[in-house]
Design a protein around this nucleic acid. Structure first.
Length: 485
RNA sequence: GUCUCCUUCGUCUAGUGGUUAGGACACCGGGUUUUCAUCCCGGCAACAGGGGUUCGACUCCCCUAGGAGAUGCCA
C-alpha cells in the first residue's frame, strides 16, 4: 500500500515549490491507488503562524487537491498535527537515550553561536556532552539549565541510501551534521525526530520532499536504524528556481499560490504547468487534466535537474484552459473579477450576470487571465473616455474620419438586428461605395463604442450594448471629432 | 571553506551507443481576420569544456568549469 504525505509547516504561505511537492505526492498516491495524507508540522512555535495554517487549507481547496487523511478529515493514524503528538516524540527520544543512541546536552544558545563562529562557517558542534562522565553531567543536570536531546551520529564509517530520483547516495559519517538536536529545550521535537517517528508510525511508504532535505537524509536513515525500523523509499524532487537560477522567492513575482488565483489563473492551468516542471510523460504531450494525471503519473519520469519557473508558458496554458472552459462556468468564474474592479455589484444583479454571460463568447479567446475581462468589457458597463484622435485611422485626417462616420451612422442602429454576416456585407458595400477600406469604417466606430482601438468584435459588442446606446455613443464621438478640429 | 547534487535550444523537456538530436512555450516571418486575440503554415535555436572506453558517443567512465542545495534548539 502506497502512503505518501504532504507535511507543510505553518510558518509561511504556500508557495510554488511546496505546492509542486504536494502535487507530485498527491498524483503518485492516486496513480498507485494509495493514500495521500496531510500532516501539519508545527513544531516551531517561534515561527508558528495561524494565517499560514489557514492558507494551507485555502490553497489546496482552490486547487482541488484533497487528502484522504488529515487534521480536518481524520484518519486512523492521527493526530495529524505534530503539536498534538508531543508525548510520542518524548517517548521515542527517551528510548534512544536509553539505548545509547542519544544524550542530553546543556549548551546555551550563546555557546553554540560562539562555536559556529569559531569554526569559520564550517559548522560543527564539539559534542562536549556526548561522552561526559556522569559526575560532571550531574552538575549540569542539577543547575536547571534546560536540556536538549542530541543524536549520536557515528564518528566513522559511512551511510548510504537509495533515492528514486537521484540514485544511490553516500556520505562519510564524519561529514554528517555533528549530533543534531532531536528534542528542543522547549519540549518540542525537531523536524528530524518528528518526521522520522511520524513517517514510521503513519506507515508512510514514500517520502517525497524537496531537495533541501537531501543532506539530512543520512541522519534520518541512521535514526531509522537506531529505532530498528525499515526506512521508507526516498524521493527527492528537483528544485523549482527563478530565472536567476536561485530558489524561488518573493522577488521572482507571485510565489504565494493563492496570488495566482487573484491574478486570474485557473487551477487547472497551474496544475498542468506545475506537473511539467520536473516531470514529463513523453516527447509529445503538454496538456494534462488532473484526472488523467491521477492515472499516469509515475516517479520514473521525474527529472533531476532544477527547473526554472516559466511564467510565459504558464500564461499560455492559462489562456488555453480559459479557451477550453465551458461558457457558463467561465462567466461564473469571471464574476468575482468584475466585482473587484467595481463594474458589477456584489452580489451581482440579474442583468449584470446576463451581460457577463453574453459577453463571454466575445472575449473568451482573448483572455490570458480572468483578470483581463473587466478591461475588455468595461465599455458595456460605463461610457468610455478616450481621445477623439484615437478614432482617426491611419492615412486619414479628422475631417475625413468624421465624414465617414457620418455616412455610416445609419448602419449602426441596424447592427443588433442583423447577423454578423449581414452586417459585414452591409459595411463592405458601404466601404466600396465610399471608396475606402472596411477597417476605416469600423475603427472609428470601434473607438466610439469601446473607447479603444483594441476591442472584442465590433458587431457583437454593439449588439450587447444595444442600438440606442451605440448610436448615442457614435453621435457623441462624431460631435467631439468635429469640435476638436 | 566543507559536503552533496545538477549540466540537451532563451525556458520546460524527449532521447538510455549508430536519430537530419524530436516536441512545447517564447521569439521571428507568412496566411486567415472588422482591431486585438484565436487558428494555420514556416523559421531561428541545444548536447558546458577536456580527456578516455568503443568501429562508433548526447548517451558509459574520469577530470575541469559553472550552477544549486545543505552546513540551526527552522522546516
Amino acid at each position: 500500500m502506497v502512503r505518501v504525505r504532504y507535511a507543510p509547516s505553518p510558518t509561511g504561505l504556500q508557495h510554488i515549490g511546496s505546492v509542486r511537492t504536494a502535487l507530485f505526492a498527491y498524483l503518485y498516491a492516486r496513480s498507485q491507488a494509495g493514500v495521500f495524507l496531510l500532516r501539519i508540522e508545527d513544531t516551531d512555535r517561534e515561527r508558528y503562524d495561524e494565517a499560514s495554517l489557514q492558507d494551507i487549507y485555502d490553497t489546496f481547496g482552490w486547487l482541488g487537491l484533497r487528502w484522504d487523511e488529515g487534521p480536518d478529515v481524520g484518519g486512523a493514524y492521527g493526530p495529524y498535527v505534530q503539536s498534538e503528538r508531543l508525548d510520542i516524540y518524548r517517548r521515542h527520544a527517551a528510548r534512544l537515550v536509553d539505548a545509547g543512541f542519544a544524550y542530553y546536552a546543556y549548551d546555551s544558545a550563546q555557546e553554540l553561536a560562539a562555536q559556529r563562529e569559531a569554526s569559520d562557517g564550517k559548522g560543527g558542534y564539539d559534542r562536549r556532552f556526548r561522552d561526559m562522565p556522569e559526575e560532571q553531567l550531574a552538575s549540569y543536570r542539577d543547575s536547571g539549565v534546560p536540556a536538549v536531546i542530541r543524536f549520536k551520529t557515528p564518528l566513522d564509517g559511512s551511510t548510504r541510501f537509495d533515492d528514486v530520483v537521484l540514485g544511490q547516495l553516500s556520505w562519510k559519517n564524519e561529514d554528517l551534521p555533528a549530533d543534531p538536536v532531536l528534542m528542543k529545550s522547549d519540549g518540542f521535537p525537531t523536524y528530524h525526530l518528528a518526521a522520522v517517528v511520524d513517517d514510521h508510525l503513519m506507515e508512510i511508504s514514500h517520502i517525497m520532499r524537496g531537495p533541501e532535505w537531501v543532506p539530512s537524509t543520512p541522519v534520518h536513515v541512521l535514526l531509522y536504524e537506531a529505532f530498528g525500523w525499515e526506512p521508507p523509499v526516498f524521493c527527492h524532487l528537483p528544485l523549482v528556481v527563478g530565472e536567476d537560477g536561485k530558489k524561488l522567492s518573493k522577488r521572482h513575482g507571485a510565489t504565494r499560490v493563492l496570488e495566482f488565483r487573484e491574478r486570474g489563473y485557473l487551477p487547472e492551468a497551474l496544475i498542468n504547468y506545475l506537473v511539467r516542471v520536473g516531470w514529463s510523460y513523453d516527447d509529445k504531450q503538454e496538456i494534462f487534466s488532473l484526472e488523467e494525471l491521477e492515472r499516469i503519473f509515475l516517479l520514473d519520469r521525474i527529472n533531476k535537474a532544477p527547473a526554472v519557473f516559466d511564467y510565459q508558458k504558464l500564461e499560455w496554458l492559462n489562456g488555453y484552459y480559459i479557451r477550453e472552459c465551458a461558457a457558463d462556468s467561465l462567466a461564473q468564474a469571471l464574476l468575482p473579477f468584475m466585482q473587484r474592479s467595481g463594474l458589477i455589484a456584489d452580489p451581482p444583479d440579474e442583468a449584470d450576470i446576463r451581460t457577463v454571460r453574453d459577453a463571454v463568447p466575445l472575449i473568451q479567446e482573448r483572455l490570458k487571465y480572468l483578470a483581463d475581462a473587466p478591461g475588455l468589457i468595461r465599455f458595456l458597463f460605463e461610457e468610455p473616455d478616450f481621445d477623439p484622435e484615437e478614432m482617426v485611422p491611419k492615412k486619414l485626417d479628422r475631417g475625413e474620419t468624421a465624414a465617414l462616420l457620418e455616412a455610416v451612422l445609419p448602419l449602426v442602429a441596424q447592427i443588433p438586428d442583423a447577423t454578423d454576416e449581414e452586417n459585414e456585407e452591409r459595411f463592405r458595400a458601404k466601404a466600396a461605395a465610399l471608396e475606402t477600406r472596411l477597417g476605416n469604417l469600423l475603427m472609428p466606430i470601434r473607438v466610439a463604442i469601446t473607447g479603444s482601438r483594441v476591442s472584442p468584435p465590433l458587431f457583437g459588442s454593439i449588439r450587447l450594448l444595444g442600438a440606442d446606446s451605440s448610436v448615442r455613443r457614435v453621435q457623441k464621438a462624431l460631435q467631439r471629432l468635429k469640435e476638436s478640429r
